[in-house]
Design a protein around this nucleic acid. Structure first.
Lengths: 99, 99
DNA sequence: CCATTATATGCGGATATGCGCATAAGCAAA
DNA sequence: TTTGCTTATGCGCATATCCGCATATAATGG
């Protein structure tokens, strides 16, 4: 629990989760670009999210695709949803369609 | 947001919130006892929760009574509820009535 | 005023966290 | 195999976090 919250309490990691929140797969390089993070930094942060079971990864050729762990227990899924909602309330994400 | 999550991501502070979750007022001395924390430690942690707007305090004679901030915006109230629910799922709180 | 109880805070030290740099490792195409 | 692209990791540094100890501040009662 504490480690889960710690995992969420960091800007790059929270930013990554917000991007993954669309339910799709995203490679490290994409997350780096969108979040303005260096490669090693992004890789390490994703590794920590993975260690804490919040995301899962998949090798796809030279890329590693991350997604939010689809098998999260209900209370953790609820926690993440609440965190994402609170983050959106603070700083709305840029929309893809309709400005 | 990040600072809110950081505030939650510490055992003594999360423990305090779980105690405050009954909606009542609790003094520092009570929290110290129940959480096995030293006085300075407890005081500092409560101070940080207060700084982040999660709790409010009230002087009552020689005591300072803390409660969860009743004026939290919805998304933060939702976040706290989700955190408390997840914490309960991990380690249920001892019940007062009925084991 | 003094003693007692409750809480806050300055200080220094130990440990944890986050970072960049360099390098390794994985994979694909030539 | 060599080259290039992507991701992971060892290392050391800078800073943040947490703690206990000691002391200050606040309030109460004698």
């Amino acid at each position: 629990m504490i480690s889960i919250l710690s995992a969420l309490a960091e800007p790059t990691r929270l930013g990554a989760l917000r991007i993954l929140a669309d339910g799709g797969e995203h490679c490290v390089c994409e997350l780096m670009d969108k979040l303005g993070a260096s490669q090693s930094r992004m890789s390490r942060h994703m590794s920590l999210l993975k260690t804490n079971g919040l995301v899962v990864d998949r090798r796809d050729a030279q890329w590693v695709r991350y997604t939010i762990n689809p098998d999260l227990p209900d209370h953790l899924r609820g926690l993440i949803d609440a965190v994402l909602a609170a983050a959106d309330a603070e700083i709305p994400l840029p929309k893809r369609k309709a400005a």
